[in-house]
Amino acid sequence: MVFTEFFQQFPVKVLTVALLIILIVYFIRKFIKLFFDKTSFLDEKREETLMHFSNQVTRVVGLAFFFIYVLSHFFDFGKILTSSVVLASALAIILQHIIRDYIMGLTYLFERQIHHGDYVILNGNRQGKIEEITMRYLKIRQYDGYLYTVSYSNITELQNGTRGRRRVNESLILNYRQNPDDAFKVMEQVAQTCNEKYGQYLLKDVNGIPIESFQFNQITELNVDFKGHQYSLSGLVKEADFVEAGQKVRYELAMAAYKNDLMMAESFETSH
């Protein structure tokens, strides 16, 4: 009798339900992991992404059930759900961005546009490795070490570089007084040097021929930030070599600019 009364106390019931939900979430996650370990019809990256996403879903659903259980002791949810159509509509309008995030997140996931660990460029100005995929947002680790978080509804453009290939795209911004003909000769020489020294990084076809060698793309943008013109060089490399290849190309560009006395662009604040 005392034992029964003990479990009828509200704090004890809440703690019991919380422990039960934790156990259920744990076993669901273990079952999903075991399922992927025993099957092989999905590739490893796809399995890792689904595992990561399922962990997020089970956590959110578990918390939702817990809060509903606790609040049900203070509110009559049956009456609220049957008599508050207007309230539900108002909440849908207020939470439309959150709902949109969830829908777009599911779309990105099930259309296989992103995987955990992919290298992506978001909205043209943020790039890095996907470190976390949640139900509402992405977290990417940028090359400068910062962790960037963006909700799905704020993603207007997504470029995924992880499909076994990446395009190195490096550039010099030269002063507008720099003679373009001289700059062209230097950039073409840098492209040739990169092909000779770093050809092992290039992505090749079945015959061992580079799909896209390092090449000079001429002037890709004029008057960048009112400082100068942009001269770009690019090449298609293997995903695993992307970071190192980019470092090598940047070094060759810096060395070429130094040796050939190219006029680098300067801001008005630093010009003399």
Rank of each mutant, 00 (worst) to 15 (best):
I93K: 08
T16C: 06
A88F: 06
Y152G: 05
Y198D: 10
P210F: 02
I155K: 01
K185R: 14
N125C: 09
G208Y: 01
Q230A: 12
L63N: 04
V61Y: 03
V237Y: 01
Y148G: 11
G164C: 00
Q8E: 11
S72K: 05
L147D: 13
D225F: 07
K38C: 01
I140N: 07
E5S: 15
Y201K: 10
L106G: 13
R112C: 01
A90G: 11
T82Y: 07
I219V: 15
Q218H: 10
H73Y: 10
I103F: 12
A92R: 09
H272S: 08
A183F: 05
N260Y: 06
L87N: 10
F67S: 08
K33W: 11
L233V: 11
G124P: 03
Q247D: 12
Q9I: 09
K259F: 01
I98N: 01
Y201E: 06
L109I: 12
F75M: 05
D144A: 15
L158G: 01
I121W: 00
M255D: 10
V14S: 06
Q178M: 05
Q230Y: 00
K204P: 10
Y231F: 13
V206I: 05
D182T: 13
A254V: 03
R100W: 02
F7Q: 04
R250C: 09
T149N: 15
L20F: 14
Q192Y: 04
Q215R: 15
D37T: 14
D144T: 14
Y258T: 02
Q178F: 07
R141D: 08
D261K: 14
L95Q: 11
R126S: 15
A183R: 06
I103M: 06
A257R: 08
Q215I: 12
I22L: 14
I99Y: 08
Y143T: 15
I22H: 11
I133H: 01
L236D: 04
L71I: 02
N154G: 13
Y198R: 09
V224C: 02
D225G: 01
F268N: 14
L122S: 07
S271Y: 15
E157F: 03
N125I: 07
M255N: 11
A18E: 13
V186S: 03
E170R: 14
K13C: 10
L174Y: 02
D76G: 05
A257W: 00
L262N: 04
Q127P: 08
V120R: 03
L106D: 05
E252P: 08
Q215G: 14
K38E: 00
D182K: 15
K45L: 03
R100Q: 07
L233T: 07
Y69R: 09
T134M: 06
E269G: 12
N195T: 03
T134D: 06
H229E: 09
N55I: 01
L15D: 11
Y152D: 02
G235N: 06
Q96T: 08
E266I: 14
Y119F: 13
N260M: 00
K204G: 10
G164E: 00
E157R: 12
L71V: 02
M135D: 05
T49D: 00
V25T: 13
R126A: 15
I121A: 14
T193F: 00
I121T: 15
G62H: 06
Q215C: 13
Y146A: 15
G199R: 00
I209R: 12
L138R: 02
I133Q: 00
G117F: 02
T156I: 04
N223L: 09
S153T: 10
S153Q: 05
S54F: 07
S84T: 12
L20V: 14
T16N: 09
G161I: 00
M1G: 09
I155H: 00
I219F: 02
M264Q: 13
